[in-house]
């Protein structure tokens, strides 16, 4: 039997998720403090895969999962480059993607920033010397920040974004 009151009183969520990572919270509050200096209260990021193995994508999308939930720090991932402040590029830039990468960048309004995420985006990584890649995002776009790693963990990506915020406000 259903008690009508319980429908209102019972929490409408799954089990409460108790988890607190002090390092992450400190990072987040620093990001929140740094952000208004240049970007208003939010940072709009467009993620672009220029030919990675998909692990970096997985770590970037992990930023939105309950463990990190970076939207509470003012970071959001947007669907169009037209709405983006920052282009987060993964991958060594394949020849097949080079044109699309350039067009995505051109579609962004200025001022705009480019962050290379992962070893392959930073300098070609394991694909260095292949006929099929340019060998790093800086071969085709002006890169403002590099976040190395194979792949970098979500926290390392956040640290890189914080460094970008600091650099932008200088």
């Amino acid at each position: 039997m259903i008690k009508p009151l319980s429908l209102f009183l019972r929490p409408k969520v799954t089990e409460t998720f108790e988890f607190r990572d002090e390092e992450l919270e400190t990072l987040g509050s620093e990001i929140k403090k740094e952000m208004p200096k240049v970007f208003g209260r939010s940072l709009a990021i467009r993620e672009l895969d220029s030919g990675s193995d998909n692990s970096t994508e997985i770590e970037i999308s992990n930023l939105g999962t309950p463990y990190y939930d970076v939207e509470r720090f003012g970071i959001s991932f947007v669907a169009s480059p037209r709405h983006a402040d920052v282009l987060l590029v993964t991958g060594a830039v394949t020849l097949n993607m080079a044109e699309a990468v350039k067009k995505t960048y051109e579609a962004m309004p200025s001022p705009k920033f480019v962050v290379a995420v992962g070893d392959d985006a930073c300098n070609g990584g394991i694909y260095k010397g292949s006929y099929a890649v340019l060998g790093g995002v800086d071969k085709i776009l002006p890169v403002d920040m590099r976040i190395p790693g194979n792949p970098p963990s979500p926290k390392e990506i956040l640290k890189g974004l914080l460094a970008l915020l600091k650099k932008a406000s200088e």
């Binding site: 990675s52 193995d53 997985i58 060594a92 394949t94 097949n96 694909y127 010397g129 292949s130 890649v133």
Partner: peptide, 29 residues
């Protein structure tokens, strides 16, 4: 094939133990 990185060609001439990292880079997950 937008992400074609030339993995098979990169493997050529490498020793098997060097190639393991390439195999891991085929698909991250």
């Amino acid at each position: 094939f937008y992400k074609h990185r030339g993995i098979e060609k990169l493997a050529e001439g490498k020793s098997p133990s060097e190639c393991v990292a390439l195999a891991e880079a085929i698909s991250g997950d």
